[in-house]
Design a protein around this nucleic acid. Sequence first.
DNA 1: GCGACAG
DNA 2: ATCTTGTCGC
Length: 270
Amino acid sequence: MEKQPQEASLDSLTSSQDQHDWIAAQDFLRTKLITEDSFTWKLNTSAGTSKQGALEVLRYVGGVDISFSKDDPSMACGTLVVLDFPTLQVVYEDFSLVSVHIPYVPGFLAFREAPVLLELLEKMKKSNNPFYPQLLLVDGNGILHPRGFGLACHLGVVADLPTIGIGKNLHHVDGLNQSRVRQLLEAEENHAKDFITLVGCSGHTWGAAMRSTQGSVKPIFISIGHRISLPTAITIVQMTCKYRVPEPIRQADIRSRDYIRTLQMNARTM
DNA sequence: GCGACAG
DNA sequence: ATCTTGTCGC
């Protein structure tokens, strides 16, 4: 019996075999995931500095994002920025222009976005750049994901870095949905809190929904990526939020968009 | 079968 | 993700 031809791998199509492989890759990488604090630095809180020994202090926090060209949707700009902590000043930025042919499939964002971002991190590491991040904030979820292994986990495990996932929208998982979460945030018992823990129908904790600016209606969704605990992730996100989106990601986003916009602008003039 | 579905 | 200006308000 001839096998039904899989959808040709034209751009923006993905065969069920691809997804099968992707799931296997996620399942494998997930066995390496560390879901608790596992790093050598500490937060530079005024309380702990005097007594605790000469441990390294958290100083460099990275942020990554990708933007796409509106003219040519396969053209993408991967961006890595590093901010000084806790001043939140940008001390490093780098961009990489690439062609992306892997489509966006919900649940498989990493296969589309991770390669460029890993390349940017690798470049920095190989050159022993002094600003190499001690922690990375990622535009996309961590364990808040259908198989508990979103982009932030993927980057964390492959780059062996502590990572935090930030979603601007909720990926519906385990009975959690956007309207229910907003409802919970508005509830009287939670109205004073700036975040709530996201516990699904199964009882599993997937992350937290945070009201990152005073009185904001639209929350952000925090989940652990790799080598960090949820409480620590929440503390760091709170310390890096000048606006709704944590500054490392916001800067990566702004600069990435700027870079590709300038490029298109020049393309027209020539 | 239908709808939902990070960026 | 991207298409898109002004506008209401602190």
